[in-house]
Structures are given as C-alpha cells and as structure tokens.
Nucleic acid binder design. Sequence first.
DNA 1: CGCGGGGCGAGCT
DNA 2: TAGCTCGCCCCGC
Length: 105
Amino acid sequence: MLETQEQRREAVYLALAQIPKGKVITYGNLAKLAGMPNGARLAGRLMCGLPEGSKLPWHRVINSQGKLSMPVDSDGYREQKRRLIKEGVEFVNEKIKLKIYGYNS
DNA sequence: CGCGGGGCGAGCT
DNA sequence: TAGCTCGCCCCGC
C-alpha cells in the first residue's frame, strides 16, 4: 500500500479533500491522515506541484507552527492567506490559531 | 552513489 | 519566543 508515488499522491489528495471549510491542517497531520506518519515534507512537496485548476483546498494546509510555509512577500502567501480569511480563519501576527481552527480526525 | 536542500516536525537550550 | 540540531523522505546534481 502506498508503494508508488501516484498512490501516495492520491492518498494525500483524499485526506486533503476531507478538510472542512474554515479549518486548517498541518503538513504532518495531513501526511498522517494519508497513511504516512513521516511524510510531512512529501506533503509539502505535493502542494508545490498541485495543478492550478485543482479543486483541492491546498490553502488549508499550513505548518505545525500555525503559519503559512512560504515567503511572506510571495504572491502565494497572500493568496493563501486571503482564501483562509475568506473562509473565516483568523490570523494573529501572521499566525493561525490551530487551537481553534486546527482539524483533527 | 554521495551531497545539499526543501512550503516539515519534534526536542533542547 | 527564537535559534539550532537531528531525523525523515524525496529530488536534482
């Protein structure tokens, strides 16, 4: 199970697809849900390579520090933050309150 | 086949 | 809280 990268990719996508609107999940947790206890970095890599038109809520994926894992001066950062705020997620000093918005299965 | 680096994470100082 | 180190896994050179 989860032998090929395609299977792992699917697993991560499926896990990501079940994150409800208004919630966020960490890379590590996402990988975990996908059946990869130590695939946090892989999850991050997959986010990088996500297709533009993908309906997946990639913006709900952040790092364990409750922050967006990319340069604050990048467009991607602003885009992700904008989408999250639009879903009702609060930011405090560029950080998200995982305690409240964190997703847990 | 080793090496360095990355949208990570946990632990220590 | 900020920085650093170390472990994991995947990729490109």
